[in-house]
């Protein structure tokens, strides 16, 4: 799978009467994790929805750099796990095929769940799982789609720090080589996973590329360069919020 880069060209996005983005030009590199970082309400989710094709921009467009259309090549993972409470874990993972009317691939779904450490929970209902397990099922469902572009909207924000760190490791390992756009408000998450880190602030939003810490992702949370970058990033976010 070759994962394309995403080109955002002259993008304008409005939400609830506010112009969040105007004339935004941005390239999200192919095959790596790009982390979009910003305070709540800055418009991260709106931007991601436009990239996912869920909302239309008021101007501009999002294209893949290989020239082929993006439609059908994007998987989306929202803030909540969005599991169907009536469906067993494995059926939740195969939701995409069930909604497209294709024959679900049970073996592949089971294999993905095994990689998530949920091999013994295939027949469980979502209500029987912890928050971290549910998010792992959601990640397995995203991987089951097997799309080169994966958009993630603060998928780990509701988890406790230990579970979150484990999910970050799992995401970095399983989404390797894909074009991932990850939204977060957590500077540590950005520094652990980002191969491009973009700070969003202002209205309309200005995007600033931040120096990426050294090392392959997932970077250890106690690494000196990660800790330093996290501190710099937090300082920048505070400055941006104060101005």
């Amino acid at each position: 799978m070759t994962a394309p880069a995403l080109d955002l060209r002259g993008l304008a996005v409005a939400h609830g009467g506010r112009e969040l983005f105007a004339g935004l030009d941005l390239t999200l590199p192919g095959g790596v994790f790009s982390v979009l970082l910003g305070a709540s309400g800055v418009g991260k989710t709106s931007l991601l929805r436009v990239i996912a094709g869920l909302d239309r921009p008021t101007a501009g467009m999002v294209v893949a750099d290989d020239g082929a259309p993006l439609a059908g090549r994007v998987a989306w993972m929202g803030q909540r796990d969005l599991l169907q409470p009536w469906a067993r874990v494995i059926d939740n993972v195969m939701l995409g095929d069930r909604l497209r009317g294709r024959r679900p691939d049970r073996d592949r779904a089971a294999e993905l769940l095994r990689r998530m450490g949920l091999a013994d929970r295939l027949a469980a209902l979502p209500a029987e799982l912890s928050g971290g397990m549910r998010q792992r099922v959601a990640l397995a469902r995203t991987l089951y789609e097997d799309r080169p572009v994966v958009l993630m909207d603060e998928p780990f924000s509701a988890l406790d720090s230990v579970t979150r760190a484990r999910m970050q490791d799992l995401a970095a390992e399983t989404l390797h080589d894909r074009t991932v756009v990850l939204i977060t408000h957590d500077p540590l998450e950005a520094c652990r996973l980002g191969q491009a880190i973009l700070l969003m602030a202002g209205e309309p939003v200005r995007v600033e590329a931040i120096a990426v810490p050294a090392g392959a992702v997932p970077r250890p949370a106690d690494d000196d360069s990660v800790l330093h970058a996290q501190g710099v990033l937090l300082r920048r976010m505070l400055d941006a919020a104060g101005s």
Partner: peptide
């Protein structure tokens, strides 16, 4: 709406 968004991102029928 989150479920419907998810379905749309999956090109559901």
């Amino acid at each position: 709406p989150g479920w419907l968004d998810l379905a749309r991102s999956m090109d559901a029928r």
